[in-house]
């Protein structure tokens, strides 16, 4: 088969795999994105006792292969099957998709926490004092001053993290989730046609490129107050 034919016969599976990859990445990144700012707050402003478990968690996640974490959750949960059944959680852990999402969330949360910590610590203290001085509550300061700045600072690093997560999602194929990588390996084992790997590479690169493009547009919007106003002369 030539490279075109293989795509013609297998495109529905590859499309299905692509959607799965997107689902894993987006869901993982979003859940992690909802948790990490709060952990980052604790990590930068919390007491030492509150910080320590977060530090250990982040260090553990960063110090172990995602594949090992995935096996620990997916296969490891089997060791506690009776207990998990009693808790009604067994059905959750039996499904490789759930395990994969859980691991990706745990993973991305750790990395995003570190990124957001950098963003929060990068916020100009003077602006926070100014907000206090006009009588804002802590919550309002967070919402109106700290987080907007922190996200602007962290934005490029978050983009990298999401791309890393998308790449990591390919590991789900090892525990039989049929993402792009899973479908590719399935098709290769049937056809022994190498070109399917090149198609997979192309799809991954396309996703990355589209993502980077979109992210940049949002970044420009976030930074609109500090971008040079090129059009100022043209308008006047």
């Amino acid at each position: 088969m030539n490279p075109i034919e293989i795509m013609v016969s297998y495109w529905p599976r590859m499309l299905d795999g692509t959607l799965m990859t997107l689902k894993l990445t987006i869901l993982g990144a979003l859940i992690a994105g909802a948790i990490s700012p709060w952990l980052a707050l604790v990590r930068s402003h919390g007491s030492l006792i509150a910080q320590t478990p977060i530090r250990i968690y982040v260090s553990f996640v960063r110090g172990t292969p995602i594949l090992a974490q995935l096996f620990l959750v997916f296969y490891g949960s089997g060791q506690f099957r009776p207990e998990l059944m009693e808790l009604g959680l067994w059905n959750f852990f039996r499904d490789p998709f759930n395990c994969a999402i859980l691991v990706f969330v745990l993973n991305s949360t750790a990395y995003q926490t570190e990124i957001m910590r950098g963003g929060i610590q990068g916020v100009n203290l003077g602006e926070i004092e100014a907000a206090k001085a006009i009588g804002m509550t802590r919550m309002t300061i967070l919402r109106r001053v700290i987080f907007p700045h922190a996200y602007r600072i962290a934005w490029p690093a978050l983009s990298n993290e999401i791309i890393l997560l998308m790449k990591a999602s390919a590991l789900a194929s090892v525990v039989t989730v049929f993402d792009i990588m899973g479908r590719t390996r399935q098709i290769f084992s049937k056809t022994f046609d190498f070109s399917i790997y090149l198609w997979a590479a192309l799809i991954y690169l396309a996703i990355t490129s589209l993502f980077v493009f979109g992210w940049h547009r949002i970044e420009r919007r976030l930074n609109r107050h500090i971008l040079p106003r090129n059009n100022a002369n043209a308008v006047s």
Binding site: S59, G63, T64, A68, Q69, L72, Y75, G76, G78, Q79
Partner: peptide
């Protein structure tokens, strides 16, 4: 580790040990 898990049927214990070894290496 996977081979050991296959024989001992103690996946959590062994994968945890593997994780800890990687962790030590990284630290």
């Amino acid at each position: 580790t996977k081979v050991a898990v296959g024989v001992t049927k103690q996946p959590f214990t062994f994968y945890l040990v593997a994780c800890l070894i990687y962790w030590v290496l990284c630290v």
